[in-house]
């Protein structure tokens, strides 16, 4: 599997196909049993997770994983944990508050009191606070209302366009993911079985039958 800079790539597949494990391996939480992961040409599969974050890989994990008893601001500062550039952090906060205008009004609330959609926005913002070059998104649509999902996917595209942030999107909602992505991979039982442009995958008969419900 390969991801080029500035792309939106999606990985689709059924429950238990190994999508989340793939992301956790990239982030260094689940070391791969075999094989290599290269980032900007360098192997990262033996690095510790904090080292991987410092290289510019951030993840928005499945289920959002907001720190429930930290305030929204503290959650955002956790995203910038490894950064020392205070001025840039301030600017990035402003940018994020523009991206998600609901967050500033919630800044002193604890994360656990936010609604599902707000938590997802906070989770994405937290990951962005690390200034990632590669943003890993695990099931951003999970459990959200269609209107919120639409909003979140618009913002994902916007982040990609404005910051050239490479995005690796894992989704069960294949239709949604393929519409947002440039290219896609299909995973079955832990291995990639298909890879093509998102357009081609959307019209591929097997994919249609298995994942798009058409």
């Amino acid at each position: 599997m390969e991801i080029s800079e500035g792309e939106i790539i999606t990985l689709i597949g059924a429950n238990g196909a190994g999508k989340t494990t793939t992301l956790m391996s990239i982030s260094g939480l689940v070391p791969p049993k075999s094989g290599e992961i290269l980032f900007l040409g360098k192997p990262i599969h033996k690095m510790s997770p904090d080292k991987i974050v410092s290289l510019g890989i951030s993840q928005v994990p499945e289920g959002r994983r907001i720190f429930p008893h930290l305030t929204v601001m503290e959650n955002l500062h956790m995203g910038a944990f490894l950064r020392r550039d205070t001025d840039r952090i301030k600017k990035d906060l402003e940018y994020i508050f523009e991206l998600f205008p609901i967050l500033p009004s919630r800044r002193h609330q604890t994360g656990g009191t936010l609604s599902g959609g707000e938590q997802q926005m906070l989770a994405i913002s937290r990951a962005l606070m690390a200034r990632p070059r590669l943003l890993l998104l695990d099931e951003p649509s999970l459990g959200l209302a269609p209107k919120i999902i639409k909003q979140i996917f618009e913002i994902i595209r916007k982040i990609n366009a404005e910051h050239k942030t490479t995005i690796f999107l894992v989704e069960q909602n294949a239709n949604l993911a393929l519409q947002a992505a440039d290219r896609g991979y299909v995973m079955e039982n832990g291995s990639i079985v298909l890879s093509d442009t998102a357009q081609n995958l959307l019209s591929n008969n097997d994919v249609k039958k298995a994942y798009l419900g058409l």
Binding site: S54, F67, H69, L70, E74, F81, A130
Partner: peptide
């Protein structure tokens, strides 16, 4: 505090 609440997520934050 973050580590106490969700250790894996703290790791993912660096």
């Amino acid at each position: 505090r973050a580590t106490a609440q969700d250790r894996d997520m703290a790791v993912l934050s660096g």
